[in-house]
Every structure is written in C-alpha cells, then in structure tokens.
C-alpha cells in the first residue's frame, strides 16, 4: 500500500476540521443541550430556585397546555395551507418562466424579488398593506368608503390569512425555481413525441409534465414544509402571535417562553418538539436528495 491514502485522510480531516468544529459547537451541541435543558426546571433570573432535574415534566406540561396545543394547531394549519398554495403558484411561475419569450430574464428577476427581500421587510410591508387606516388592502377593496375599512390584523381569521398571504408572496418564487429545475430536465423530445401521438396542450400538461415533475414537486414540497414549520419573522413583526393566539406558531411560542418569560426548561421542551417534527421531515430530505450527491461516489 502506498502512504498516499493516510496522507490524503490527514489533509481531508484538516480541511474539514473548522467546518466540523463550528457545526459541533454551534449546532449539534446546542440541540443536545436543548434536550438536556428540557429535562430541567429552569427559570432565568431566579437562581434561588436552582435547576432541578424533572424528567419529562416539561413535556407533560406542554401536553396539558392549551396555548401550546393552539400553537401546534396554528403551525400545522399554517404549514398545510401555505405550502399547498406555494406549490400551486410556484408551478405556475415555473411554467411561465420555462417558456421562451423575450424579456424572460426580467420576469425571472421580478419573480426573485420577493424571495430576496428580507422577511422582516416583507412582514412590515404586509403589515402596512393590511393597516386599518393607511393600508393598500382597504384602499383597493373599498376605495373612498372609509367607513368600511377593516382592521385586518385585529380579526383572528384575517390575521391568520394575512401571514399565510405574506408567506405565499415571499416564497412561491423559491418553490417555482425548484420546480423550474425539474421542468428543465424534461427532454423536449418527449413533448414532440406526445404531439405526434396527438396529445393536446392540456393533455401534455396532465399526462407528461406533471408526472415527470413529481420528483421536483416533492422536493419543493419538502423544502417549503420544513421552512414553514420554522416561521417566526412574519409572526413577530405582523401579529406577535395575536389576536387571541390565532397566529401563535411554535417557534414564536418557544421564543417567548425562552427569552421573554425566562422559562428555559419549558422553552427548551418546545424547541425540542419543533426540532423532532422537522427532523422527521429532514430524514426524507437526506434520503431523497442527499443521496443524489453521495451516489456518485467512486466505487
């Protein structure tokens, strides 16, 4: 055996070392530590109480906490509705950008703008649009009839719809780009063959485009689902979880418990729950997409 292999291993480890160090210290250790914290009763700023080990007490508290249950339901609802809409709109955007027409580059730029805008800015923007007095929504709907203006964010249903709306606006183009990548690998020949076989535009879309697009759609779905699970900025800026916890999502609830109320243990339990939910989803990700890169290993 040559000595090259160990030398290469050594170099590889050094190349990886900083990345691994960062990941271990600021990602893996914190997750484990969060779990550890979630098994203790910790109130920040009240050292006298100590930090007693309480087993799964925080998780039991959470199961019995109606606000936590509400946050869970809101999150699930948000994930389902927003990802469904984003996938449909994303598909539309992808189909448009995939066509050949002059100025296509500029349409793509336009579609990317919402994605590039900081979420906080987008949130403030939508908050302003849904403003009861100065908002664009009221202006468009009611014009001069000021007395009919609606304080959108003050109604639970409308507030929830507003954050969904903002999220869909912000991220549909991202879903669209993932779907576009899938569209681009469908060979033109297949469409030609279908045309010769007599399929109409509509039939070609349903019988060829959609089935062949399935992997890309799945990918977009997974990404959007995982991301929607982590929604925070929108809620923080637009509604602060209100009114009446109607927009209280898990990451915001956990954030409040951890940093506003100092309930370190309880907040950690919520964060571990969110983590596990996303972890299950990310298993799909690693298996479905990660393997694509790993497949091409030399034998």
């Amino acid at each position: 055996m040559t000595s090259r292999a160990p030398l290469e291993h050594q170099a590889a480890w050094w190349m990886l070392a900083p990345a691994l160090a960062f990941t271990l210290v600021f990602a893996l250790y914190p997750v484990v530590d969060s779990f550890f914290l979630s098994l203790h009763r910790i109130f920040l700023g009240v050292p006298a109480l100590g930090q007693p080990f309480v087993g799964f007490e925080n998780y039991q508290t959470m199961a019995g906490d109606p606000v936590a249950r509400q946050a869970f339901l809101v999150t699930i609802g948000f994930v389902l509705v927003s990802t469904a809409l984003e996938l449909v709109l994303g598909l539309g955007i992808a189909l448009v950008i995939h066509e050949h027409f002059s100025g296509r580059g500029w349409v793509r730029v336009a579609a990317l703008i919402p994605w590039s805008i900081p979420t906080v800015v987008a949130s403030q923007m939508w908050r302003f649009i849904f403003n009861d007095q100065y908002g664009l929504a009221n202006l468009l709907l009611f014009g001069e009839r000021v007395e009919e203006y609606i304080p959108w964010l003050a109604y639970p249903g409308f507030a929830f719809a507003a954050i969904v709306f903002a999220d869909v606006w912000k991220t549909s183009s991202f879903a669209g780009l993932l779907i576009l990548a899938g569209l681009q690998v469908i060979p033109e020949e297949v469409y030609d063959a279908a045309r010769i076989d007599g399929a109409t535009t509509w039939q070609r879309f349903w019988k060829i485009t959609l089935p062949l697009l399935k992997p890309a759609l799945l990918l977009a779905l997974l990404f959007r689902t995982m991301d929607a699970f982590r929604v925070f900025d929108l809620v923080f800026v637009m509604t602060q979880g209100g009114p009446g916890d109607s927009t209280l999502v898990l990451q915001f609830y956990g954030y409040k418990a951890l940093f506003a109320e100092g309930r370190m243990g309880y907040g950690a339990a919520i964060s571990v729950t969110v983590f596990l939910a996303i972890f299950v989803l990310s298993l799909f990700y690693i298996r479905g997409i990660g393997s694509r890169l790993l497949e091409k290993e030399p034998a």
């Binding site: 055996m1 040559t2 000595s3 090259r4 292999a5």
Partner: peptide, 22 residues
Amino acid sequence: GLEPQTQGAVRIGGDHVDHLSP
C-alpha cells in the same frame, strides 16, 4: 501512484516507489 495496488511492488530505476506519492 494515483492508485494504490492491493499487493506487489513497483520499482522505478531499481528503487521501490510504493511509499512515494506521484
């Protein structure tokens, strides 16, 4: 030297080179 052999030896100009990189 781009690929290690499983067995055997390579000699260039009479010198063993198996431990040498390309």
